[in-house]
Design a protein around this nucleic acid. Structure first.
Lengths: 222, 222
DNA sequence: GATCTATTTTGCAGTCACTTAAAAATTAGT
DNA sequence: ACTAATTTTTAAGTGACTGCAAAATAGATC
């Protein structure tokens, strides 16, 4: 019972709708393509589209357990002697080196990125995914360490690691929107990531301390 | 010419619409009150409602520069010898002691909180406001320290402080949703905040380090 | 007070995402 | 081929939001 005809057709239909929708969105913009048009092009009824995708946004940014559970998995699979932060750092730098795009930037995907940044409902969806990702990571940490329900540390740590990742990815996105390819950004990106993770590692307790005297100049943080 | 009749009426109309909308939403739920009904109750046309508020969500959660700019102002107004983190911590604990609700929980406002948590579009709006708050804080930090455009530290620090605040406020919200008043939560909340800020201060570099001896995990490292 | 102008409010027609329910088509099992 | 389960379609709505022109209102001028 490898896979019935029914299931295969479902899979294919869903994929076809998603592909066609993505193509139309990239070609003409998210807002100026209607769901009815996607349905027409994919040769199904509008209701079939909504059968597979709960919202129009899902046509482009599908809620996938794989993406949302990435950080949680890294936490669970980290090696002995490895801290949570170290595990995420290792995986992120590894993704950068191998060119894997699991952290949100594709090679040549700047049309994709631009559309997401300029369409409010899509940006909102990304925020939602980020939140889910951090929540799952917090749960994984709590379970792994066996912390009590009143302990906020897992949530705080997860949120902070997520925050660092968002800042670093945002840096890459900004440069991609300015026209650069991921290839030319990667080296700087690596350094920025090291710095951001470093900041997290040693704490930001003293960051931005105002000079106590009168030296109110362009001070450099420690 | 302190204020013309025209401007006074505008202000009053806007306030009346907002108040009536909030009352209806609290009484019957955000989704089961239509904008048409708000308009009818406030004795204006639907178009007038949309004249004052861009979206239905704005009727409840108005985008206010005061709320979104809070963290940025704290950064700019921090005292000499005070770090960014220390300034936010001081203000947060001060708000907690004086009962000021500028961080998002009102006394007796649990109906409000519950509605936001259970209505997806309102939760999305809160995320949006959080993002704006952190972006403005990052800009304030960057300007205050005179950092270059390639320096991610202000954004990272702002995002991390925002993350800690969200975790702590989330803790309070969860207990309020369970039926407790802010009064009975405050002492614990203070301690949780101290711990969260402490985590940020000294860094999370070693957090969750797996014991090097034996593998007690469920998963397998790839 | 009458008049003219700028601003605000309203009415109206429309678009589009999304919902619900039932009929029709397709696939699976016997 | 027949029946049951599943998927797709059709049909009819709901409700947020938009664009535009007409009507009402406020401010300024004479």
């Amino acid at each position: 019972m490898s896979e019935g005809l029914r299931e295969r057709k479902k899979r294919e239909t869903r994929q076809r709708i998603s592909d066609i929708a993505t193509g139309l969105f990239l070609a003409r913009g998210f807002d100026s393509v209607t769901v009815a048009e996607v349905a027409r092009t994919a040769d199904v009824s509008v209701n079939t589209v909504f059968n597979y995708f709960a919202t129009k946004e899902d046509l482009l940014l599908d809620r996938s357990p794989e993406v949302e559970g990435l950080l949680a998995r890294i936490v669970r699979e980290r090696g002995p002697g490895e801290s949570v932060l170290a595990a995420v750092r290792r995986d992120f730098l590894d993704a950068l080196e191998t060119g894997h795009y699991r952290y949100g930037f594709h090679e040549g995907g700047d049309g994709f990125v631009r559309m997401i940044e300029t369409t409010p409902s899509l940006a909102a969806r990304v925020r939602e995914m980020n939140e889910a990702r951090e929540r799952l990571m917090a749960e994984a940490i709590a379970e792994d360490l066996g912390t009590g329900p009143g302990d906020l540390a897992p949530a705080v740590v997860a949120a902070q690691i997520g925050a660092a990742l968002r800042a670093v990815v945002g840096y890459a996105v900004r440069r991609m929107l300015a026209g650069e390819g991921i290839g030319s950004i990667a080296p700087d990106l690596r350094e920025q990531a090291e710095r951001a993770f470093g900041l997290l590692e040693s704490g930001i307790g003293g960051y931005g301390t105002r000079p106590a005297g009168r030296d109110r100049g362009h001070g450099h943080p420690s």
